[in-house]
């Protein structure tokens, strides 16, 4: 077996893990499976591309690649703008759709169906605005460098793995040790009691959307940087995202990341062992096994 599968799996797992973090937070705090989350990844990538285009028009030097990477300073700057716009998109969607349904006391299944509809609308809108033709942050070619033990990776790929590790650590520390994190965990356990404790639940919901959208945008940019940007890129990741969130345990940030890495590695090894055509089925198989054997996931807590 080719050890390159480990690197391929870690890279795919980084994108899946970051995306799954937003999904798991939304699931645990807002208590619904958000089908639009995959589309937030795609919107994040397209919005970042748009901002990069504007920045490139303003200052051409920003697009020049910075050694050893395939992109210039324009991309990280554009990603900040992309994160801000993706956050605005999610907060807007919550205001006009999910928030209104919550205020009416709608059942979770109604909100899930609404998210399914919103997901299709967001995807179609992307296709309408940007067309279905794939686009790229950069077309510069990178040579993968040897890492030892028969594994190779490009500088962009190593950056993606490093940035993911940094973001997951920062988020884990935020949720574990900060007042905001304590409030998020409290709302996740019992929103009614959180209000009695003096927590502004609406504010916690906003923070959850902000973190989820930010992570989704960064995951989308990573996927776009390493592969390509397509309107369906988020939708195609939806099943791996759900599998990773459930495998890690709903509400657990390290769990979502570990779940993402396990899914990514499983897919990479499956490609080598049983063939690339079965890659997409792996997430589904893992999801079914977890739901049957340990529905609370690796780090989740059983319902009382």
């Amino acid at each position: 077996m080719n050890p390159q599968a480990i690197i391929d799996g870690l890279i795919a797992g980084s994108t899946i893990g970051l995306g799954a973090i937003g999904l798991t937070l939304t699931y645990s705090i807002l208590r619904f499976a958000n089908f639009t989350h995959g589309d937030f990844l795609a919107w994040g990538a397209y919005l970042t591309l748009t901002v990069a285009g504007v920045l490139g028009g303003l200052a051409a030097g920003l697009g020049a690649p910075v050694y050893p990477f395939s992109f210039g300073w324009g991309l990280p700057l554009a990603m900040l703008g992309g994160v801000a716009l993706t956050v605005a998109l999610t907060l807007g969607l919550d205001r006009v759709l999910f928030g209104k349904l919550r205020a009416r006391g709608a059942d979770a299944i109604i909100i899930v169906m609404a998210s399914f509809g919103a997901s299709m609308a967001l995807r179609s809108l992307l296709e309408f605005i940007f067309t279905a033709k794939p686009v790229y942050f950069t077309k510069a070619l990178q040579i993968a460098k040897p890492l030892g033990l028969g594994m190779r990776a490009t500088p962009d790929q190593l950056l993606v793995i490093g940035l993911t590790a940094l973001l997951v650590l920062a988020l884990h520390l935020l949720v574990t040790y900060s007042a905001t994190g304590r409030a998020m965990r409290a709302v996740s356990e019992d929103p009614g009691l959180a209000g009695v404790y003096g927590i502004d639940v609406a504010k916690v919901v906003r923070v959850t959307w902000i973190i989820g959208a930010g992570m989704a945008c960064i995951a989308g940019v990573m996927a776009g940087l390493l592969v390509q940007i397509r309107p369906y890129m988020g939708f195609d990741l939806l099943l791996p995202l759900f599998s990773a969130a459930i495998l890690g345990g709903i509400g657990s940030i390290p769990g979502a990341m570990l779940g993402g890495l396990i899914i990514g590695l499983s897919e990479a090894f499956a490609v080598q062992i049983i063939g690339a055509e079965w890659r997409a089925a792996i997430s589904f198989v893992i999801l079914v096994i977890v739901l049957m054997l340990r529905p609370q996931g690796l780090f989740g807590q059983k319902e009382a």
Binding site: A179, R182, E189, G198, Q301
Partner: peptide, 15 residues
């Protein structure tokens, strides 16, 4: 909040 520690329960209220 049963999933939070005793001190975390008090810290939330102290906010």
């Amino acid at each position: 909040f049963t999933r939070l520690s005793i001190i975390e329960n008090l810290q939330i209220a102290a906010q």
